[in-house]
Design a protein around this nucleic acid. Structure first.
Length: 630
DNA sequence: AAGGTGGACTCAGAAATGTCGAG
DNA sequence: GCTCGACATTTCTGAGTCCACCT
């Protein structure tokens, strides 16, 4: 039986009680709170007018100076996340601007002036007209339902059929508008940029324990139509505008409490230092909370990230024991244990996600390990010369397809046959198992162990092993980077991180091939020229000719290097077309492995981590030396 | 005491935006 | 030096995991 509907109204009582608890919990640290005020105020205003070059220089300076090395400080007591937190509150999405009078909506062929609220929602749909979403029936129905709810009764009486609605003029208006924006002059664009920079300056940072930290998402999400991933039952529903009255602010008591926009109030202001968020609101589609939190470069995120990899490293010490145990459990008398052991084998070997149960009808039908159904696997006693092959085919997180044929151990195969006996395709494969049972078991094996740790562990250890196996110290930097990318790719494949093939892929591949051919030609020509120069030197033996030979040699060498680089590029590109490397790099690979590798092989860190990534991994860059072992 | 539920946090790819080098 | 498009980066917000707490 799958879960019941979630979004029920919370009981007031429990909420109040919880609040009380938080207060108690927090009291202690409140007292310790040091009222350090904003000591540092970087004089940003002055830089603003300067030209790019200077600004860049300043950036660099900032990069090396006054960075908070929180990793050198002592950790706070358990559960307390900060002692000082001050911020400006969220930046609200701009209000709706009505359409000009000459842009009209048509119903049944006739122009119809809509009320402001109705018109706004119409624009959400109009903007998406050339997206395939709007061709889907569920999307259309959900949209139309929600739209009608917001109409005046007069409008409701007229607008009864979406097919009779003509949004094309509105659509065109927005297309033109975005064209116009692209066509703005340099100066106008510059001005726009400055305005958004100013907002970033003002709302994009907070003060956390005396340090200025960047916020990850400081803007509220604008209203629009919900776009789920995959086959989402709620696609097209109206996502409502967030008002200050919806927003809970979290900050420290003695800080400057953010002002709500003129004429508005916050839903609540609280002072909870056991959580990391600055503001939150409830989103109306799934009735779940959304948060404003810090950027990955912040202490709060960085510390947690570091800790994640430390847990994974502890798993390394016990993983052999755990593997031995689940292998033994395959033969257990208890069905529950067998299921747990087989599931864990999948999680370990295939890096599957845990697979929480989901409420049917509320989200797209996707699964992870524990929620696999019989219909998601096929058993092949023999396939393509391999024994005991399991064919997986299911939609995972974000409705990304997982398709894999794996030869498994005999005992696993037998167990799967057993689990599937007398079941329907739609039945749970592991009917005696769920994520909480699994995680409780894992916790008992190692402190802090849960299913996702296996993904982190296997990803990182794979990178380390692959780097060891693939890197050739004789290679030049480009060659080494290819090895790095290949190691990274092995991880991405393991974790099933995919992307749609870029639209321009074929074309850009062709272009690259053309370049390669041209370069080959050049190399040949250079070879001939060199030959000629050598012959001439042979004849004349004069200094000028000798210099010429040297020159041609150099040219040839340079061209050959360029050709080699292009070839490397082509290989890399082809191998990468459907694989997304970013996710694993950012979330699964202990950065210290990569940094150690860079140091060991003399590859500049900038070659593998861009600026943002270097900020996120500042802790690792500072602490890892070339001997680091995961 | 098992299972449901809300809350808080990580992880995910698409889309928007910025940049940079070839022509 | 300028433009244009390919590619890189950033933004966006949806989709998971996991745990504490409640019944």
């Amino acid at each position: 039986p799958r879960k019941e509907k979630r979004g029920k109204i919370k009981e007031k009582k429990s909420k109040e009680e919880k609040k009380e608890k938080r207060k108690k919990n927090k009291k202690k640290s409140d007292e310790e709170e040091t009222p350090q005020k904003t000591q540092k105020r970087k004089s940003k205003e002055g830089e603003e007018n300067n030209n790019n070059k200077k600004a860049k220089k300043e950036d660099k300076k900032e990069e090396t100076e006054n960075k908070w090395k929180w990793w050198e400080e002592e950790k706070k007591e358990d559960g307390v996340k900060w002692t000082q937190l001050e911020h400006r509150g969220p930046y609200f999405a701009p209000l709706y601007e009505p359409l000009p009078d000459d842009v009209q909506f048509y119903y049944d062929g006739k122009p119809l002036k809509l009320s402001l609220a109705t018109e706004e929602i119409a624009t959400f749909y109009a903007k998406m007209l050339d997206h395939e979403y709007t061709t889907k029936e569920i999307f259309q129905n959900n949209f139309f339902n929600d739209w009608r709810k917001e109409m005046t009764s007069k409008e409701q009486k007229i607008i009864k059929d979406l097919d009779k609605c003509d949004f094309r003029e509105i659509h065109k208006y927005f297309v033109d508008k975005s064209e116009a924006r692209k066509a703005l002059s340099k100066e106008e664009k510059q001005k726009l940029k400055e305005e958004s920079d100013k907002i970033q300056e003002e709302y994009g940072y907070c003060i956390l324990d005396g340090h200025r930290e960047k916020i990850g998402n400081f803007k509220t999400e604008p209203p629009g139509l919900f776009r789920g991933r995959g086959d989402h039952p709620k696609m097209g529903m109206l996502k409502k505008r967030i008002m200050p009255e919806d927003v809970v602010i979290n900050c420290s008591k003695d800080s400057k409490i953010p002002e709500p926009p003129e004429g508005h109030k916050w839903k609540e202001v609280r002072f909870d230092n056991t959580v990391t968020w600055l503001a939150s609101w409830t989103e109306n589609i799934q009735n779940t909370l959304k948060y404003i939190m810090l950027n990955p470069s912040s202490k709060l995120k960085g510390e947690k990230d570091w800790q994640k990899y430390e847990v994974a490293r502890r798993l390394k010490d016990v993983v052999h024991k755990i593997r031995a145990q689940y292998r033994a459990d395959w033969k257990s008398k208890e069905m529950k244990k067998r299921q747990r052991a087989v599931a864990l084998y999948f999680i370990d070997k295939l890096a599957l996600r845990a697979g929480n149960e989901k409420e049917e009808g509320e989200t797209a039908d996707t699964v992870g390990c524990c929620s696999l159904r019989v219909e998601h696997i096929k058993l092949h006693p023999n396939l393509d010369g391999q024994e005991h092959v399991v064919e997986f085919d299911f939609l995972g997180k974000d409705s990304i397809r997982y398709y894999n044929k794996v030869s498994v151990e005999k005992m696993v195969f037998k167990n799967l046959q057993l689990f599937m006996k007398n079941k329907n395709p739609a039945d749970d494969l592991f009917d005696r198992l769920n994520t909480s049972i699994l995680n409780r078991h894992l916790q008992s094996l190692m402190d802090g162990l849960s299913a996702k740790v296996f993904r982190t562990y296997n990803a990182s250890i794979t990178l380390q092993e692959q780097l060891k196996a693939l890197t050739n110290s004789e290679d030049n930097v480009a060659g080494k980077l290819l090895s790095y990318n290949r190691a990274n790719r092995a991880v991405a494949i393991l974790c099933n991180h995919q992307r749609s093939t870029p639209k321009t892929f074929e074309k850009s591949m062709q272009n690259l091939q053309i370049k390669i051919d041209a370069k080959k030609q050049q190399v040949e020509e250079a070879q001939q020229e060199l030959k000629k120069a050598e012959d001439e030197f042979e004849d004349t033996k004069d200094a000028k000719a000798e210099a010429n030979v040297e020159k041609k040699k150099k040219l040839l060498k340079r061209l050959e290097e360029q050709l080699a680089k292009l070839n490397v590029q082509a290989t890399d590109k082809e191998e990468n077309k459907q694989i997304a490397l970013g996710t694993s790099k950012l979330n699964y690979l202990d950065p210290r492995i990569s940094i150690a590798w860079c140091k060991k092989f003399g590859v500049p860190i900038e070659k593998i981590y861009n600026k943002t990534q270097r900020e996120k991994f500042a802790w690792a860059i500072d602490m890892a030396d070339e001997d680091f072992e995961f």
